[in-house]
């Protein structure tokens, strides 16, 4: 186990390193002028030249690359063009907002998906099964942003139950502070994106749980549990479901990472001030240091998610032998 962990950990380090390298070159080699990455083209030429020297952009690219790596190690993501403040200060608050939306809705999606999936897998071949699969597939096929639009159209505009967007009422908290998360207003704003995201994300765990259940149902220990005289309900929830949870549990961290990456869509439509929206805004404003910072942070979360998923799989399934 220890050796396996060490190998996997070294893979993560390699992956993260590759990701940082890729990001560095992606942001510098693709556009015509690599300095556009750090110096706003809006400045006058003399000032641009002065900054070029100050930021070391007149140095060879390889040298810049090592400076960049050293800076990342110190959480120095550079400075935003627009606010001139450190990128790290801008993205850390946004990360909290993203997690406050994504974590609760993914937890709910997995809980509901697991139970519903176990239920329809148990009642294989029933009308309920066919119906749930049909609805889940159609839901999964709809673009998330479109479902959000419909939800806003119906619940916010027509019924006036929820705000159409933002994290708290505009103007109520001019500065980002933790106190705003403790207000009723925050929960009120969270409700609609939470529900839409939950509904959309629960399709995957549901379908996965169902197909795992299909193979569990035929196993001997289920038959044994039945013969012991347990009720169908006990067999389902105490024996069949816990065994089938394994593949589901192991996908969670990876899907979480992907959900953070996918937050661009839901955050844009609900004007939710998270990492995803920040990235979209920064791209439209050509604020490249900010885009790079947000991109790297999301990438680190995704890589970590995949790693945790792999480790969980080994820990939860004793049949897996580490070599």
């Amino acid at each position: 186990m220890g050796r396996y962990l060490a190998t996997r950990l070294s893979h993560v380090v390699i992956t993260l390193f590759a990701m940082m390298t890729l990001t560095f070159f992606l942001f510098r080699l693709l556009p015509g002028d690599p300095t556009a990455m750090v110096i706003s083209p809006a400045l006058d030429p003399a000032a641009q030249e002065a900054m070029r020297v100050r930021f070391g952009l007149d140095r060879p690219l390889v040298e810049q690359y090592f400076v960049y790596l050293a800076n990342l190690a110190r959480f120095d993501f550079g400075y935003s063009f627009r606010t001139s403040g450190p990128v790290w200060d801008l993205i850390q608050g946004r990360l909290v907002n993203t997690l406050l939306l994504i974590l609760p809705s993914m937890t709910a999606a997995y809980a509901i998906g697991a139970f519903l999936g176990a239920y329809i897998g148990w009642h294989r071949g029933s009308r309920t099964e066919a119906g749930v699969i049909l609805v889940a597939t159609i839901l999964q096929s709809a673009p998330l942003f479109w479902l959000s639009m419909l939800a806003i159209l119906f619940f916010s505009i027509k019924l006036d139950l929820f705000p159409t967007g933002h994290i708290v009422s505009p103007g109520s908290f001019p500065e980002q502070t933790w106190r705003m998360y403790l207000t009723w207003d925050f929960l009120h704003h969270l409700a609609l994106p939470f529900m839409v995201n939950t509904l959309y994300q629960l399709c995957f765990p549901l379908l996965l749980m169902r197909s795992t259940m299909l193979s569990t149902v035929g196993e001997d220990f289920i038959e044994l549990a039945r013969m012991k005289g347990l009720t169908e309900r006990q067999v389902l929830f105490r024996h069949a479901m816990p065994t089938s949870l394994l593949p589901l549990a192991t996908t969670l961290p990876m899907i979480l990472g992907w959900a953070v990456a996918g937050s661009v869509v839901i955050e844009t439509i609900f004007s939710w001030p998270g990492l995803g929206l920040l990235m979209v805004e920064a791209v439209t404003q050509a604020d490249y240091p900010l885009v790079q910072g947000a991109f790297l942070l999301i990438a680190v979360l995704t890589v970590t998610g995949t790693f945790v998923a792999d480790m969980l799989y080994g820990m939860l399934d004793p049949r897996i032998v580490y070599r």
């Binding site: 992956t15 993260l16 990701m19 693709l30 953070v260 990456a261 999301i298 990438a299 979360l301």
Partner: peptide, 23 residues
């Protein structure tokens, strides 16, 4: 597989947005 891992870690939509913004 290491290369595949690296791509598996790439955040899907953000990566596409960055490439589109750059190219």
């Amino acid at each position: 597989m290491r290369i595949t891992d690296i791509f598996l870690g790439l955040p899907f939509l953000p990566f596409i947005i960055v490439v589109l913004a750059m190219t």
